[in-house]
Amino acid sequence: MAAPASPARPNPAPAAAKPADGLLPSFATCLAVLALGLTAIFQATDGGSAFTTETLRRSQVARAPAPVPDFAVVDAQGRVQPLHRLLAQGGRVWIVDFEYTRCLSLCRVGGSVMQRLQDEIAARGMAGRVGLLSISFDPLNDGPPALADHARRLRMQPGLWQLVALRDEADRRRLLDAFGILVLPAPRGEFEHNAALHLVDAQARLVRIVDLGEPETALTGALSLAGP
């Protein structure tokens, strides 16, 4: 045993600590730590409902619609117009997705989902209430010729499904941030990004984000937003 009077002694081994004072303080500490930990996790996950950035983004938008900033966009015919003017056309609600025309594999899914939506909207005669809009986030490669090519390949019907790209490369970051999209470079010059269907109203507000696998939900949501 170390003499208590020695000038310095090593940190006493915990086994040597007197356990006589009971476990109550330790239990209290434990519970306090647990309460703090759970509070932190609760806050970070939007009340335990969203564990990924993607679900957080969706629940935040559902709670408070986010204004979409205005950008100059260019279409397949080379026409330049502000995004807000495009969105205000006909007072429609838009289902927006993000693409890049060089896509070979991953975003094919997005394209085919939009195609199915186009067929559905046309079949039910709802083109006056809901529009489809694909925005390319690759302004360096997606000029009007590439857009025209892409529109042909996906059999986009003009007036029902619009395809635009940013005119200025400098706007790319702002556009992606506004929608909460993170684009990562992938092999063979492709990109990997979180993909979803974004419901944007005529007032250029991002109102809801729906999973790519639930186009019916997106369509129903868009129709209820558009009103009768």
Binding site: A17, D21, A28, C30, G37, T45, F51
Partner: peptide
């Protein structure tokens, strides 16, 4: 050490911190 008998408090702290930083949203952040 009275407040950390059997290392209960420390282990709980480690557990909470680990669970917190394993959340995908926080890894993104």
């Amino acid at each position: 050490a009275r407040f950390n008998r059997y290392g209960l408090g420390s282990l709980m702290l480690a557990q909470c911190l680990l669970a917190y930083w394993m959340l995908p949203a926080l890894i993104d952040r």
